[in-house]
Design a protein around this nucleic acid. Structure first.
Length: 789
RNA sequence: GGGCGAGUGGCGGAACGGUAGACGCGCCGGCCUUAGGAGCCGGUGGGAGAAAUCCUGUAGAGGUUCAAAUCCUCUCUCGCCCACCA
């Protein structure tokens, strides 16, 4: 037999599969399965072995589902708009479209190299007018529903990328992408009203088969807190100050109030003699970057406004301060400060010598004298004292009662509306026209797409590049036919990716974004595979858009992704593999050396698929040796079948491991039995089963050997075999004495208990001798444990 | 400060509460080869022993159980996420 010529085999089968349209998606699925990958953005550097991991896992899964009789939709596309392409184009003095047109074919080849069963006829590219026409349509749909709106807002400005960013794209006050310190700017921007769906986005997480970790991240991001809104009158003023608190039980410990510097009431209540100081403080705060403002261990600063609030219960005069440790973006931008029971307030009070008042005792008997001694504060719940009518209540009782008596129950969320305007070129133009007479007007659907001009200067300057393009900007009002200006911002690329999975069902539709008919055949997505980095942004936005489209009666479901799987990150030298770090391993070279099947196998063998792993360049050879061995075995198969026992058991185990998404252990079993096959060559029948088990992992090799067995159809058209557990007629029983392993005995599986106990006892007699037998534990098919004294 | 994970050989990692270390890498020994290797065979947690076998071992300390890497309590270490969020 010839040597294993993996390259020849792989090339041959890819051509045949393509020619015979093996992966062509069924027109009318009887049993549908939608297996989705998070689509990549076209990159000049192509894929590295870290990218491979997710694609290989989903492909293994898709092939397994296909063999289980499902009609599988397994599509791919490119998230082609956005900063990566634009920045790459600037760097190469090219144009984003040109850059994209070069990068996509190369990545397509790389993806094909993996040997995936994608249906390439359904490929979508978000930067194509035939795609973004519908992104614009979806924008208009949200606009029609009042879910897209324009407002003047303090926004996150990235000075390097020269664009506004969504809150979600700002990490520790820095740009998620380039790391530049974010500035706050006041700008008129487009937002999507994701906050209309806050409660539903939170509640529906319960229904999803997603990793708990991702659900928790989304819950935290939505950030629901329940508390009370308490109102404080300002002495000698008609102003009222509302504060939000989750701990109304500490109301009687409140000794001052704090407003955020940007709070609208701050200016009004500040007394004349404090005006100067206040203005100066506000100016300094404004000048601080977000990073500086939230820097750890920064001393608390603030100024007195000269005004006083009245305690709603005791009518005590409480000084009102302005301090930047209170932020305008959360709650009401004002707090009741309780220095005895809140760390931040405590730090501030210490700094400015404000007295504290303890009102809660820990109910665990701890001494709270320290609190009084100004050494620390008590932030837990306990028993109230010094709290008027509420003295003696527990915190939990008081939270409800005080909240009701002096205010109203209130729920606050951290989730903000989604800012979608970008002052960049490479994105879908926002289909809006401004008319002096008619105001904000939606572009008529017949005029979609609003084409992105190809000849625009796209260098970022802070203003939208499209604003410098007169033939784009000047247009006609769809309402009055008078002259008007186009919106010149483009949409955040997360808008493109918030609906792409719908387009795959009907990618060539020129009449609609997707037809209900095609959509209903496939959605929702049964399995979505991708990295944890999209746990918040992409997944939350896609869920929101789905819900908005459901309310527009355009889709018939409210959650897009029934099941989510997070592929672990591949590290090299302890750090996440990335081109910018320079620690990438190029799959092309490995494929050239070992073939795709070897690399596929190794990607899945690295470790548990959902855990981060360190790439070990040398270990790839182990998989290659294994495939060589399987090739050798195929030359030695016997005609006669003695018994299918070991094979049936193997089928059972591999099926179980695949179902549990444990490809690493499935592969370990496949390898282990290959050693048996070297000793005892398998029969044709056995080996055919074995190849079916190999097929989801090693499609090329499995298909090739399948045909050398004389099979006519593709192995992927064959039905996944049925396994059985516990077929072996003999079984190894563990014999313990006092829980310690002392021997093993080999007995028939259906051995009588007395006989088993007898042979077990014989095996460990010398450990029992001279001791009294207290008890015998027998676990069928597993062990016998003699308890002696 | 809060939340969520995770600690098992030289390394990646296996183990429905029931033979700890499957499988792979590496290493050691041998084989094939003119030679080389990313080829083949065997061995490989630590300790004692010629061997049978015994002792010991899953971050640490307790506990539950006939039996604990696995369940419970505390401690330590590492990782990730969130965070002046009231």
């Amino acid at each position: 037999m010839d040597r294993y010529n993996q390259h020849g085999i792989e090339k041959k089968w890819r051509e045949i599969w393509e020619k015979e349209k093996l992966y062509h998606t069924a027109k009318d699925p009887k049993k549908k399965y939608y297996c989705l990958d998070m689509f990549p953005y076209p990159s000049g550097d192509g894929l590295h072995v870290g990218h491979w991991r997710g694609y290989v896992l989903s492909d293994m899964w898709a092939r397994y589902q296909k063999m289980n009789g499902y009609d599988v939709l397994h599509p791919i596309g490119f998230d082609a708009f956005g900063l990566p392409a634009e920045n790459a184009a600037i760097k190469r003095k090219s144009h984003p479209r040109k850059f994209t047109a070069q990068a996509i074919p190369r990545m397509r080849e790389q993806l094909k190299q993996i040997g995936t069963m994608y249906d390439w006829e359904r490929e979508v590219v978000t930067s194509e007018p035939s795609y973004y026409k519908w992104t614009q349509k979806i924008f208009l749909e949200l606009f029609k529903q009042g879910l897209a709106y324009r407002k003047n807002a303090l926004v996150n400005w990235c000075p390097t990328d020269q664009t506004v960013l969504a809150n979600e794209q700002v990490v520790e006050g820095k740009c998620e992408r380039c790391g530049a310190v974010i500035e706050k700017q006041e700008r008129e921007q487009w937002f999507f009203k994701i906050t209309n769906y806050t409660e539903e986005l939170l509640a529906d997480l319960e229904k999803l088969n997603w990793p708990e970790r991702v659900k928790t991240l989304q819950r935290n991001w939505i950030g629901k807190s329940e508390g009370a809104l308490l109102s404080f009158a300002v002495e000698g003023s008609s102003e009222k100050i509302d504060v939000f608190t989750t701990r109304p039980d500490t109301l009687f410990g409140c000794t001052y109030l704090v407003l955020a510097p940007e709070h609208p009431a701050a200016e009004k209540i500040t007394s004349t003699e404090h005006k100067k100081e206040f203005e100066a403080y506000r100016k300094t705060t404004n000048a601080l970057s977000e990073v500086e403002r939230i820097a750890e261990k920064r001393e608390k600063t603030g100024v007195h406004t000269g005004a006083f609030a009245l305690h709603p219960a005791t009518k005590e005069k409480l000084p009102i301060f302005v301090a930047d440790y209170v932020v305008m973006g959360y709650g009401t931008g004002a707090i009741m400060a309780v220095p005895a029971h809140d760390q931040r307030d405590f730090a501030f009070a210490k700094q400015y010598n404000i007295p504290l008042k303890t009102t809660i005792k820990p109910d665990d008997g701890r001494d709270d004298s320290k609190i009084r001694a100004l050494e620390e504060c008590f932030t837990g719940k306990g028993i109230l004292y010094n709290s008027g009518d509420f003295t003696g209540l527990t915190s939990d009782q008081a939270i409800e009662k005080i909240g009701k008596k002096y205010g109203a129950p209130s729920i606050r969320y951290k989730l903000r509306d989604w800012l979608i305007s970008r002052q960049r070129y490479w994105g879908a133009p926002i289909p809006i026209v401004y008319c002096d007479k008619c105001g904000i007007q939606a572009v008529s659907e017949k005029d979609l797409p609003v084409l992105l001009p190809e000849d625009s200067d796209f260098k970022p300057t802070g203003e939208s590049p499209l604003a410098r393009h007169p033939t784009f900007t000047n247009t006609i009002c769809p309402n009055c036919d008078g002259s008007a200006r186009r919106e010149t911002d483009t949409m955040d690329t997360f808008v493109d990716s918030s609906w792409y999975f719908l387009r795959y069902t009907d990618p060539h539709n020129t009449k609609e974004a997707f037809s209900q008919k095609e959509l209903n055949k496939w959605l929702p997505v049964d399995m979505y595979v991708g990295g944890i980095e999209h746990a918040i942004l992409h997944l939350l936005y896609a869920r929101f858009v789905t819900k908005a489209l459901a309310d527009a009666k355009l889709v018939g479901f409210r959650e897009p992704f029934t099941r989510l799987y997070n592929i672990g990150i591949v590290h090299l030298d302890g750090a996440k593999m990335s081109k910018s770090r320079g620690n990438v391993v190029n799959p092309d070279e490995l494929v050239a050396h070992f073939g795709s099947d070897t690399l596929r196998g190794y990607e899945l063998f690295l470790g548990p698929a959902d855990r981060d792993v360190e790439w070990n360049p040398r270990a790839v050879a182990g998989i290659h040796r294994f495939l060589e061995r399987v090739w050798e075995i195929s030359g030695n198969v016997r005609d006669r079948t003695d018994s299918l026992e070991r094979t049936k058991e193997l089928i059972f185990e591999i099926t179980r491991e695949i179902e549990a998404l444990r490809p690493n252990t499935a592969l370990a079993r496949l390898m282990a039995i290959s050693h048996d096959y070297v000793q005892t060559p398998p029969s044709k029948e056995e080996f055919a089963f074995y190849l079916q088990l190999m097929a989801p992992f090693f499609p090329h090799l499995a298909e090739d050997l399948w045909h050398t067995l004389g099979k006519k159809d593709s192995i992927f058209s064959s039905a996944w075999p049925q396994g059985e557990e516990h077929l072996g007629k003999r079984v190894t029983i563990v014999v313990q004495v006092n829980g310690k392993l002392r021997a093993t005995v080999d007995v028939p599986r259906d051995v009588a208990r007395e006989d088993l106990q007898q042979s077990a006892r014989t095996a460990v007699e010398h450990h029992i001798q001279g001791k009294s037998l207290k008890k015998v534990i027998v676990v069928d098919g597993r062990l016998v444990n003699f308890v002696v004294q």
